[in-house]
Design a protein around this nucleic acid. Structure first.
Lengths: 149, 149
DNA sequence: GATTAGAGTTTACATCTGTAAACGTAAAGT
DNA sequence: ACTTTACGTTTACAGATGTAAACTCTAATC
């Protein structure tokens, strides 16, 4: 069995931490110098700030460290797609079930998507359509109360 | 001109606050007794906790108050759809532009959607397809560096 | 009219986040 | 060997967030 599987997305990655993770996800592995260099070109943060974020991510189990001479090489322990999925789903779970569809409509309107992604989305949606319910009930009120947004 | 337009979504609504807002959005207006009653059926929070959340939402300008005898009637000052839109978009803006399409695929897979919503999404996507780029570049690294997730 | 109850306000407090300086230590240069 | 770097760790600190008790009134009750 694999040694470092991370199925459980235990800890949450904060906004600032996302910026660090994105660098490491993209490079797949990076030393702190590289991370600090790249992140500070995107955000007006001191090196110390980025060091803190790296440290917190290691403690959270989002980044792994491999000793390389005097320094570390950082690698992602949780897949980018998993983190994105959890972040989006977490946000959606908080919203009224009845309104999620509209939220998607708006979000998709405002997001640049590639032709391939759009195709894939259409395909998935068409499949989903087959078994889709006529309507989704509002789940904002406790069980037993009816109401709709 | 209208008196209480709230175009600017200044303050953020926190997770706990969302639970209160959902009740008010759904009922359209509610007194604190009702809010406390309904919210505490969904969450194991003391009345005091919910009072705090209501207070913070009023201070943030998310809820309006109208005096009604000794108590207040609370009404939403920001539309639910606007808040949902901002929440989703904010989350997406944090993720790699190249990966957002996949994030949508996963999110949509895990969300129950009505037939009508799916139809609408397909229509929007088909329209989008016409002007969609072949691919979206990864924007995780600072300008000048190329790399892809 | 005195008392009580309930609505809103203040205060409290631990944890999480964003932001960063200070520090210890081992490697690298001289 | 001695000093300077530079990497990772510790400490700091204000503001946001989750969670809730305490307090102050005004309105309703006896």
């Amino acid at each position: 069995m694999a040694i470092t599987e991370n199925t459980e997305v235990t800890e949450t990655i904060t906004n600032a931490e996302w910026c660090v993770m994105r660098i490491v996800w993209t490079l797949d592995e990076a030393d702190s110098h590289t991370i600090i260099d790249l992140v500070s070109q995107q955000h007006d943060w001191k090196a110390a700030t980025i060091k803190t974020l790296i440290g917190r991510l290691v403690k959270k189990g989002a980044l792994a460290t491999t000793k390389n001479g005097r320094q570390f090489i950082y690698t992602p322990l949780i897949p980018e797609q998993t983190a994105m999925d959890a972040a989006l789903t977490g946000q959606l779970d908080q919203m009224c079930a009845m309104c999620r569809g509209q939220a998607f409509v708006h979000a998709i309107d405002q997001t640049e998507l590639s032709q391939a992604d759009i195709q894939e989305l259409i395909t998935h949606l068409q499949e989903k359509l087959a078994t889709a319910p006529t309507m989704i009930a509002c789940d904002c009120l406790p069980d037993g109360y009816k109401g709709s947004c």
